Amino acid sequence: MSHKQIYYSDKYDDEEFEYRHVMLPKDIAKLVPKTHLMSESEWRNLGVQQSQGWVHYMIHEPEPHILLFRRPLPKKPKK
């Protein structure tokens, strides 16, 4: 599979999560399941490479070739 064609967005966040999206080329996108969110082993098997802790959290129906990921931000110590 062509890992060079996978595009990784910059990371962005809110108060709770860090987010990123990953755009897959058409040949890989056709392998994305339409019935469920992928486990880490499933998206890694497609060639997506990112650190541990990312969760495929949403399917964007109009653009199924874009995978939406998030992971919890580290808890800030209370002052």
Rank of each mutant, 00 (worst) to 15 (best):
L37R: 04
P77E: 13
E63F: 07
P77Q: 11
E40T: 07
M38R: 02
R70V: 02
M23V: 15
Q50C: 09
K34D: 06
K30H: 12
P72I: 05
Q5N: 13
A29N: 00
M1N: 15
K75V: 11
Y8I: 00
E18V: 02
M58V: 06
A29Y: 05
D14G: 06
F69M: 01
H56N: 07
Y57W: 09
E15V: 06
P62E: 15
S39D: 11
I66Y: 03
R70A: 02
P33R: 04
P25D: 04
I28L: 15
H21L: 07
Q50V: 10
G47D: 01
Q52H: 13
E42P: 09
I6A: 11
V48Q: 01
I66D: 07
R70S: 02
I28Q: 08
Y57C: 03
N45Q: 12
G53I: 02
P25R: 03
E40H: 04
W54H: 00
V22R: 02
F69Y: 00
S39K: 09
L67R: 02
V22A: 03
P72G: 04
H56L: 04
L68R: 10
I28P: 00
D10S: 12
I59E: 05
K26L: 09
L67I: 07
M38G: 02
K76C: 12
E40N: 00
I6N: 06
H60D: 06
M58I: 06
P72Q: 09
K26F: 04
H3T: 10
Y8M: 01
P64S: 10
W54D: 06
P33A: 03
D13V: 15
L24M: 02
Y19Q: 00
P62V: 13
L46F: 08
L73E: 04
W54P: 00
I59K: 09
Y8Q: 03
K76P: 11
Q49R: 13
I66K: 10
K26I: 09
I6V: 09
D14F: 04
L46Q: 01
V48N: 00
H21F: 10
P33Q: 00
M38S: 05
P25F: 00
I66A: 02
L24A: 01
V48S: 00
K34N: 08
E18M: 04
L68M: 11
M23L: 14
E18D: 03
L31E: 07
G47E: 03
T35I: 05
A29Q: 06
H3L: 13
P72L: 08
L73H: 09
F69H: 00
E61A: 10
I66H: 06
D14L: 05
N45C: 09
L37W: 00
S51G: 14
T35P: 04
Y57K: 01
Q52P: 14
Y19S: 00
S51L: 05
K78F: 12
D10N: 09
K26P: 14
P74C: 11
L24G: 05
W54F: 03
K78Y: 11
D27F: 13
Y19A: 01
R44V: 03
L46R: 01
R44G: 00
